[in-house]
Amino acid sequence: MLQPDREFLIKLAHTKMPYGKYKGKYLIDLPEYYVVWYHSKGFPKGKLGEMLETVYTLKLNGLEMLIRNIQKNFPKK
Score class of each variant (00 low, 15 high):
residue 1 M to R: 09
residue 2 L to A: 15
residue 2 L to G: 10
residue 2 L to R: 14
residue 3 Q to A: 09
residue 3 Q to F: 01
residue 5 D to F: 08
residue 8 F to D: 11
residue 9 L to Y: 05
residue 10 I to Y: 07
residue 10 I to W: 05
residue 11 K to W: 02
residue 11 K to R: 15
residue 11 K to P: 01
residue 11 K to G: 03
residue 12 L to K: 13
residue 12 L to D: 11
residue 14 H to N: 13
residue 19 Y to Q: 13
residue 20 G to Y: 08
residue 22 Y to S: 03
residue 24 G to S: 12
residue 25 K to G: 00
residue 25 K to Q: 14
residue 27 L to Y: 12
residue 27 L to N: 14
residue 28 I to M: 12
residue 29 D to C: 02
residue 30 L to R: 14
residue 30 L to P: 02
residue 34 Y to H: 14
residue 36 V to N: 07
residue 36 V to A: 09
residue 36 V to Y: 09
residue 36 V to F: 06
residue 37 W to R: 10
residue 38 Y to W: 15
residue 38 Y to N: 13
residue 40 S to F: 06
residue 40 S to A: 04
residue 41 K to F: 03
residue 41 K to G: 01
residue 43 F to K: 10
residue 43 F to S: 12
residue 44 P to S: 11
residue 45 K to N: 12
residue 47 K to D: 12
residue 48 L to W: 05
residue 52 L to D: 05
residue 55 V to M: 06
residue 55 V to R: 12
residue 57 T to N: 12
residue 64 E to F: 03
residue 65 M to N: 12
residue 65 M to H: 08
residue 67 I to L: 05
residue 67 I to P: 09
residue 68 R to W: 08
residue 68 R to Q: 11
residue 69 N to I: 00
residue 71 Q to K: 15
residue 72 K to E: 14
residue 72 K to I: 00
residue 74 F to Q: 14
residue 74 F to P: 08
residue 75 P to A: 10
residue 77 K to R: 14
residue 77 K to I: 02
residue 77 K to N: 13
